[in-house]
Write a protein that binds this DNA or RNA. Sequence first.
RNA 1: GGGCGUUUAGCUCAGUUGGUAGAGCGCUUCCCUUACAAGGAAGAUGUCGGGAGUUCGAGCCUCUCAACGCCCACCA
Length: 880
Amino acid sequence: MTNVNNLPTVYDALQTEKEIYEFWEKGEYFKADAKSPKPPYSLVIPPPNVTGVLHMGHALDETLQDILTRYHRMAGYETLWIPGTDHAGIATQAVVEKKLRAEGKSRFDLGREKFLEETWKWTNEHKSAILDQCKRLGVSFDRTRERFTFDEGCSQAVKEVFVKLYEKGLIYKGAYIVNWCPRCQSAISDIETEYETEQGHLWEISYPLKDEPGAILIATTRPETMFGDVAIAVHPDDFKYKDLVGKTVCIPLTGKEIPIIADEYVDRNFGTGAVKITPAHDPNDYEVGKRHNLKPVWVIDEKGCMKDCPEVPEKYRGMDRYEARKAIVGDLQYQKFLLSIKDHEHNVGKCQRCNTTIEPLLSEQWFVKMKPLAKEAIAAVKDGRIKFIPERWEKDYLGWMENIRDWCISRQLWWGHRIPAYYNNETGEMVVAKENPNPEKFTQDTDCLDTWFSSGLWPFSTMGFPQTETDDFKKFYPTSVLVTGFDIIFFWVARMITMGLEFTGKAPFSTVYIHGLIRDEKGQKMSKSKGNTIDPVQIIDKYGCDALRFTLTSLCTYGGQDIKISDEKFEYGRNFANKIWNASRFVLMNLDGVDDLEIDKDKLTIADKWILQRLNEVVKLTNENIENYRIGEVAHILYDFFWNEYCDWYVEIAKIQLQDENIKLNTQRMLKYVLDMSLRLIHPIMPHITEKIWQALQVKCSSDALIKAEFPKYDETLDYKKQADEMKLVFEAITSLRNVRQSFNISPSVKINLEILSSGNDKEMFKEVIPYLNRLARVEDVKFLDNADSISKKSANVVVSKSKLIIPLENLIDIDTEVARQKNKIEKLQKEKAPLEGRVNNPNFVSKAPKELVDETKAKIADLEQKQKAIEEFIEMLKA
RNA sequence: GGGCGUUUAGCUCAGUUGGUAGAGCGCUUCCCUUACAAGGAAGAUGUCGGGAGUUCGAGCCUCUCAACGCCCACCA
């Protein structure tokens, strides 16, 4: 027996969500079975930082993945969604260091080992926090398979990959200019460097010639690096400096002698056409220096301070680079070396993590040679093994891949996968191996790997790699889809593709589904420092998880536009949840005596057939749109169907049909069936409320829970198109009648009578729906007229299809009002007709457009004209 | 410097092979009709950024201009 008492009058989202989520967890519905005969569907979560707090971006990303997961689970796939977290090297180390600082300590006070202990402790305490928060999002990932990018398995995978790449010659160690963050005190990769336009200066400094009068004037934005100069370069064809090439100049303030060289790198038109060369602190200068065999001189240290070395005058040593700049400029000016200062706008590299200005620094680091690896990664996208959605991101991806540069993977951190290179304590000989060949004699490299190195292995390290014979690997790798934002295509997606192809021979996923980023209502990025964040947990507390999910989903466009949100937008989802709840309560209240038998097709009314037709169409669209990642569209389709068709019309009509003992039972079955199907369709987006109601509905089927119930499938044999079209006319009639009532201020309590002048199909149709007209338009008597003569003269009128509906109003009617109303209608008809006539009168349209379209257009015009004529007749009649 | 995105109703945005524009919010009027006022009913609102072109027909395709946003590159 169905029991509405299970459903309280007011929907309590928090209570329901908690209860339902516990039900799923207890029933182990999220757990995948690698031995299942069903086809696999798998995906891995983009692992949130272990330091992280759940934000709206996660909420969106997780919701979309959950929708895909739930849909496929219901659609008959063995579905696995692997959760996990990222050890997030720099970010986590920074958090723990901050904590230490509060205690007045630094990591160096603890030492590496002790510090790692602390960090592990911290990590283990927080590791599950963000995934626990994800529960509030209703996600159905398999926690029994939860992973961490720094766990034992992932560490094995990292070592395996590093050693193999090294052995293939694809990992090398060398001294190059890298992006150095003086605050993190580590190298970072190119893509971790962000450029900002800053208002700076261009200083023109005179370098005097040695042993002769005269000087060469150079322009620089970084005077503090001058002590690291090893040459002054000019363009070989620059006439101006032709005689100076080969001569020697002295660095101001120190007098160190450096040559003037010629190199094509120099732009004659910029600044003075002469440039100082500082190979240790500028990537271009480094290249120039190499070409001319000039030994780099370091003058800035790892902290961004002037180095304590002979080249740097004592007074500047240890000074911060910017203080030193000021001091040096002052001294240059005082000693008349400074010729001019010009304002100059330029781009300055910043550390993505801490926004500290990057110091290009020559240092010894580990790199991955990307060009050879990129080949296959490019091919896989070009030949369609991997598809981006939306497609346009393929261009970005390919552009980056085709111009890819080597990846600096070493970080001067303690928290992370330590580079598996070992140095002989005596000879310095280096061995790259998974394990230390002899801990007594060898010491491991002190650097760690870029966090993204281990995330790049995620789709297969989580499946058991380097073992590839595990059940999970065999069943679920490669994964089906990767869902993420466009901001980490280079950081993460590209690397997973590269590594996946190299180490498993397969693309790690066939589809990359890219969604937009969440922004605030002004379109700005959300950030804690701006104070414009919206906390998903707070939204869930206020509106409910399903409301959050529905709203976010509905805002997803196929083009992957960024999503602007504000607190109020979640009312949209909340209201929909409320609607589902109340409609379901109504249905449950009216199911007394219903059985589990099939709907009796012989007893279907026109309204039943209409809603079945519409449901079937919606089922088709829902399946298609999910398969095609048009998930926002799915939300809209389901909202429209459930609210505007099922609730607004079908449920209202069902109220009438329930009064008729002949069709009461069948109507109950219909109500239940369409609700059941609707809940299944909506479940992937709004899992809790649908599960809760569905269980109260007690549908007889093979599943005890909606989460595992079969997803509705399109029924090709069902065809009630004719009835569906007719119902649309009925709705039009009812709406028109209501319009009349409103126009004449007829109170809802007053019933009207109706005369219908109609024939053929129309007549049959209207006869069938009289009960609907009675209730929905509050019509008392319906009289079918044989001819126009018997029409009540004092009346309001509407034309529907080929029929005239007459509402006799006697005293109620004000003729002028009705004439005006009708004229207004004619105006509208004419507005509609004008462009159609324009087309038909164009001989080119008639000759070139498809015949069906021409016929259709003509028919439409005829229909409009017929309607207009009918209305004109009414007007005549009223005036008479 | 190169590339991408956006520009549609007062606001926020949809619009899937080109067939003549929709939603939510807001607004107007009416309604506590026994699921729902977080609701129901009836409405009003757009030279689809400007210009040109292709086409019988353009919000959609081509070109161009403008504004805003993003990405990549990075000459001191």
